[in-house]
Design a protein around this nucleic acid. Sequence first.
DNA 1: CGTAGTTTTGTTTTT
DNA 2: CAAAACTACG
Length: 794
Amino acid sequence: MSIYDSLNNEQKQAVMHTEGPVLILAGAGSGKTRVLVHRIAYMIEEKGIAPYNILAITFTNKAAGEMRERVDNLVGFGSEQIWVATFHSTCVRILRRHIDLLGFDTNFTIYDSDDSKSVMKQVFKNLNIDNKQLKEKRVLNAISSAKDELIGPEQFERDAFGYDEQRIATCYKEYQEVLRSSNALDFDDIIFKTVELFKTHPEVLDNYSERFRYIMVDEYQDTNIAQYELIRLLAKKYRNLCVVGDDDQSIYKFRGANIRNILDFEQHFEEAFVIKLEQNYRSTQNILDAANAVIRNNVGRKEKALWTSQGEGDKLHFRQFDTAYEEAEYIADDLEREVRKAHVRFKECAVLYRTNAQSRILEEKFVRDGIPYNLVGGVNFYDRKEIKDMLAYLRMVDNARDDLQVKRIINVPRRGIGQTTIDRITTYAREHALTFYEACEEVRDIPSIGAAAKKIEGFVDMVRVMRASAPEYGLRGLINDIIERTGYIAELQASEEEDAEDRIDNIYELVNKIVYYEDTTDEPSLSGFLEEVALVSDLDDMDEQEDRAVLMTIHAAKGLEFERVYIAGCEDGVFPSYMSMMDTDPDAIEEERRLAYVGITRAKKDLTITYARCRMNKGEFQYNPVSRFVREIPEHLLDNTLPKQKKVELDSYDNDSYERNIFKAKPFGLGNGSTAGNVFGVGSGISSGNVFGAGSGISKGFGSLATGSTSASKAGSKNGKPSSTLNAMSAFSKGMAKADKLEYGVGDRVSHVKYGQGTVLDILDDVKDYKVTVEFDGAGKKVMYAMFAKLKKI
DNA sequence: CGTAGTTTTGTTTTT
DNA sequence: CAAAACTACG
């Protein structure tokens, strides 16, 4: 009896074929992760390959984490030496060691798409480009695609055709220039620069080729040209490259994924051994039949048909509704019903949709029904303003050349430094070839700054102190120092804004994460933490322990499986998207169809497809026909008949007549049903006692909910983005402790860094900390947490 | 310089 | 509809 006996024939072949190029075409649910993990075990235990020589690359941190865990469980000795990582983190690790060869500092910063946008705005300013004629977004997209195809600024310029492209070429050059002077890389650069490094420094490549003698790549259908090239270079020497993928699940073309990489693998690597995994261990036959029927409509795919030895199972459920509200209501009700009947648990259910915008209505109904849920995607925890501000401070301390961060927070909280001053410093910096911060240091030499100079000097002093004390402070010390020195939380507390408390909680949550990172990482460093933040997405640290249903896009659901799946918004114009229907390239619809295939195959036992005749989009009511993908499912697999196709709809594959189907309609009462309704707050939870992801931002009538969430142990935060990333650990249980008692009492005179002197009116002993109310002589009445207020008794 | 109020604009998906 | 960008005023 060995661990390999549990594999089927094809899986075994894939596992045991360890030498040379291998292509594993793994249909959905065919156990590809199992194969990869067993293959690694086989290589080590049966072939005596050193764990050190193995590299396994995935796309998401979640996939990497899952594989890591399963490998650790299966491989007894030396499993920690196996390199399991995403493309991005692999490349970052390599660049941190060698990027000085390309003229960057090894402590470079990683810019997210928001940062990129800011850089592009600066570029437009520098080049005097009117953003009405050329959109930043368009330029960024063009640059991103270019990088995906390994086209650098010089080549882009050479190939530029026409006025617009030439201007984009100029922007591209300038954009890279700004990044370089900021010692920063954007997402695409991470791969691009690694390839560049390998190409220009063969000795570095050789070093890694020697190390990674056995390479495995998961989700190969999603690789772009740059990633392909990276893998090709690494595998060139030993040629032990095993790729796993499914051309039918290629859904990232917009991100540069090149489906040809997998379709042409046998041409790229001539002696490739190819194996197909078609036995599905996940879904019922009915679900597979539906998936197969849909995907069959695509041309230019590798023929395969999933089958299962499980029974045919229930029919697929199809439900149609008049409005998106009724659709959402049904999904929430039905899901709750099924859980109550003990057919499934919440966490075994997922609601999938095409666009993030669709999540709102669903969330609203889930909150109303008290159904615990996690929302994946949408606004990331790290995308919130207060978190980005805090991170900007950290990044500024970490990388002195990061102008962007300095500009972001130089006036946050307000220091009376306005746009004019910032522009003047920017100009001065450019003229003297300085970074923005260096220019700030020389502020008294800048003419025409006048009164603002003093404020800048104050800022520079503050940054100096932060930088100087950072090394001895440790990370938690640094973040606390920043919070205190900037008075960021103090300002929030003082503000009248409704969501101030939530934002304060979010900041505490960030402190939690920092403390957690510092305590659980071998060699914690500021760069290390920031890197993790930059490369981690919401999905990655979704907590599966908790019993919550999941709401997410179909894209985000790839690689996951659920007992019960709802696919909402199955309408032509939503799914497939309006864009893809209008696209002249037939592959646009095919990609949407692959997405449908991915969605359907997430379900193990039950699949519910819903359709809403009318839905609100960009402030207009849209009337859409049933999705063509639903019509591609044989009717005998559905438990309901589809609405009759109307004459107009028969032609709906034709773009022009489709357009006639979209009406502009005035709201006629439908609108109200959505936002009215009594929604009750977090505290009321559900019987099981689970606190659910509170979407306080969902409805404006929610005032009390926002406050209530503060005291909930696991409250969601503002904007209805439940805190899937937040952990229960309280900011106050680690890192910072609530004082046993305060040195001042009611009636005492105290002083505050920002607001000056005042009289304590009230002290409330809250769970986390004392809430102190102070009447300041100058600034009026403020309520603040004692821990951060740092009040001194006079 | 800061803010409140007004206008405009939305590519759908994301490492 | 909602977020972002812009404008005008104190």
